[in-house]
Lab assay of single mutants.
Amino acid sequence: TTYKLIANGKTLKGETTTEAVDAETAERVFKEYAKKNGVDGEWTYDDATKTFTVTE
């Protein structure tokens, strides 16, 4: 399944996707990606669109 991340960070803005077996796995991947890019904010997830959003 393809999951999408929308990053609304102070230093990183944009979108990326990952293939994962479930939302929990995708969330781990995206949180690691955000951490590597210095983004720390509020996370939301929309199951209907398989989209995570992080906003600083």
Results as ranks from 00 to 15, higher is better:
1 T>F: 14
1 T>L: 10
1 T>D: 10
1 T>V: 11
2 T>D: 04
2 T>V: 14
3 Y>T: 01
3 Y>S: 01
3 Y>A: 01
4 K>T: 14
4 K>H: 13
4 K>S: 05
4 K>E: 02
4 K>A: 04
4 K>V: 10
4 K>M: 08
5 L>W: 05
5 L>D: 01
5 L>A: 02
5 L>M: 08
5 L>Y: 03
5 L>G: 01
6 I>V: 11
6 I>Y: 07
7 A>N: 05
7 A>T: 15
7 A>D: 04
7 A>E: 04
7 A>C: 15
8 N>M: 14
8 N>C: 14
8 N>A: 09
8 N>I: 15
9 G>C: 15
9 G>Q: 05
9 G>H: 08
10 K>V: 13
10 K>I: 14
10 K>N: 11
11 T>F: 14
11 T>H: 14
11 T>E: 09
11 T>S: 11
11 T>Y: 14
12 L>H: 14
12 L>C: 14
12 L>N: 06
13 K>L: 11
13 K>E: 07
13 K>M: 12
13 K>V: 11
13 K>W: 12
14 G>N: 09
14 G>I: 15
14 G>A: 13
14 G>F: 15
14 G>V: 15
14 G>Y: 15
15 E>S: 09
16 T>F: 15
16 T>R: 10
16 T>S: 10
17 T>Q: 09
18 T>Y: 12
18 T>Q: 05
18 T>H: 07
18 T>G: 03
19 E>G: 05
19 E>L: 14
19 E>K: 13
19 E>W: 15
19 E>D: 10
19 E>N: 13
19 E>H: 13
20 A>G: 03
20 A>H: 03
20 A>C: 09
20 A>P: 02
20 A>K: 02
21 V>M: 13
21 V>I: 13
21 V>F: 13
21 V>W: 12
21 V>P: 15
22 D>S: 08
22 D>I: 03
22 D>C: 05
23 A>I: 10
23 A>Q: 13
23 A>C: 13
23 A>H: 10
24 E>F: 11
24 E>D: 10
24 E>K: 12
25 T>D: 08
25 T>K: 06
25 T>A: 13
25 T>W: 07
26 A>Q: 01
26 A>G: 02
26 A>D: 00
26 A>V: 02
27 E>T: 04
27 E>H: 11
27 E>D: 04
27 E>N: 05
27 E>K: 10
28 R>D: 04
28 R>P: 02
28 R>C: 08
28 R>F: 08
29 V>F: 15
29 V>C: 09
29 V>N: 06
29 V>K: 08
29 V>I: 15
29 V>W: 15
29 V>T: 11
29 V>P: 00
30 F>V: 01
31 K>Y: 06
31 K>I: 06
32 E>N: 08
32 E>W: 07
32 E>Y: 06
32 E>P: 01
33 Y>E: 03
33 Y>K: 02
34 A>F: 05
34 A>M: 10
34 A>R: 01
35 K>V: 09
35 K>G: 06
35 K>Y: 11
36 K>S: 11
36 K>E: 11
37 N>M: 15
37 N>P: 01
37 N>T: 06
37 N>R: 10
37 N>C: 13
37 N>I: 14
38 G>R: 06
38 G>P: 01
38 G>W: 04
39 V>F: 14
39 V>D: 02
40 D>V: 14
40 D>H: 13
40 D>T: 14
40 D>A: 11
40 D>F: 14
41 G>P: 02
41 G>Y: 03
41 G>N: 02
41 G>T: 02
41 G>H: 02
42 E>S: 10
42 E>V: 15
42 E>W: 12
42 E>D: 12
43 W>L: 03
43 W>M: 04
43 W>I: 03
43 W>C: 01
43 W>T: 01
44 T>R: 08
44 T>L: 08
44 T>P: 00
45 Y>A: 01
46 D>A: 04
46 D>S: 06
46 D>R: 03
46 D>W: 03
47 D>G: 08
47 D>K: 09
47 D>S: 12
47 D>I: 09
48 A>S: 11
49 T>S: 10
49 T>R: 06
49 T>D: 04
49 T>Y: 04
50 K>S: 04
50 K>M: 07
50 K>P: 00
51 T>C: 05
51 T>I: 06
52 F>I: 01
52 F>P: 00
52 F>T: 00
52 F>Y: 05
52 F>H: 01
53 T>Y: 14
53 T>G: 03
53 T>K: 06
53 T>P: 00
54 V>G: 00
54 V>Q: 02
54 V>Y: 03
54 V>K: 01
55 T>E: 06
55 T>I: 10
55 T>Q: 08
55 T>F: 09
55 T>D: 06
55 T>R: 07
56 E>H: 07
56 E>C: 07
56 E>I: 09
56 E>P: 07
56 E>D: 10
56 E>A: 09
